[in-house]
Design a protein around this nucleic acid. Sequence first.
DNA 1: TTGTTATTGAGAATCAATTACAACAATAAT
DNA 2: ATTATTGTTGTAATTGATTCTCAATAACAA
Lengths: 149, 149
Amino acid sequence: MDGVRLFRDYVNEKGLRNTPEREVIVREVFSTHDHFDVDTLYLRLRNKKKNISKASVYRTISLLIKSGLVKEVFFEDGHMHYEHVYGRDHHCHFRCISCKKIIEFMEEEIIDIHRKFSKSSEFEVTGHRLELFGYCRDCMEKEEKNKAG
Amino acid sequence: MDGVRLFRDYVNEKGLRNTPEREVIVREVFSTHDHFDVDTLYLRLRNKKKNISKASVYRTISLLIKSGLVKEVFFEDGHMHYEHVYGRDHHCHFRCISCKKIIEFMEEEIIDIHRKFSKSSEFEVTGHRLELFGYCRDCMEKEEKNKAG
DNA sequence: TTGTTATTGAGAATCAATTACAACAATAAT
DNA sequence: ATTATTGTTGTAATTGATTCTCAATAACAA
């Protein structure tokens, strides 16, 4: 919950302004650990009677990304999906092609890979993204039934 | 170069039609191992005086993806980037945030991860994507100069 | 050939994301 | 306090990628 405070610090540090709109958006972002996209975030705000324009949502997400508190997790259905990283362990994403479900998983080896490349003098690695895709258990079973039937 | 033939097979198999437009597009896709996006592919065709509509380029890429001969490699600058996979060893991508350069690299461990998850009965993994990002050597050096200067 | 049906090109439509701009508000300077 | 400066907001317009519509055309099988 204190990504909110970190964001305030970031904003001050950069000589920007802490506006009520930003505060509300950022609180909403850190209020859950779920993935989100601009539209769902915008709707969550509307449902709470917060009248904030979609432009401000876009602008604030952009700031959150610059601050490193939020990252792009994947591009799906024609738009970007995000998650906040504060207070969350590193994890990767498995995406079910069929039902679009996201399953998070941990994989130490990926961190090793990241470290290995960070150490090399060839690149300065600042981030990585590992996605697996395929079918989740539910969709696997459905498919088998289809084949059988 | 014989991703072209495989694509023909795919098209026949699916009861679709082998049109000259598809043939031209697919030849172009397999003519290099570079990454491409819709616009550059379309321009390459135009430069060769092939008058094929952009809609057909989109449609054919979509088929190529379904056939498994092409895959989406990353979303950048507001649009998707692709590469063909025929005759190419598996590899991952490092993307320089600064100059947008792509550097390919091999990482056996990622294949292990993929395998491990494929074996689990939790998911049926059909693909994966690993990206690292950061600064390439050139941009690293430029940055250091900036700090020094 | 001919009939059936997929495919094409052109342009319209859709949708995500960015931007211009005038009104407004936060902070700094006086 | 008051004013000046400059960042931020909402609205609406804009840009750009991708998909869709539809009439004309072309592949392929019979």
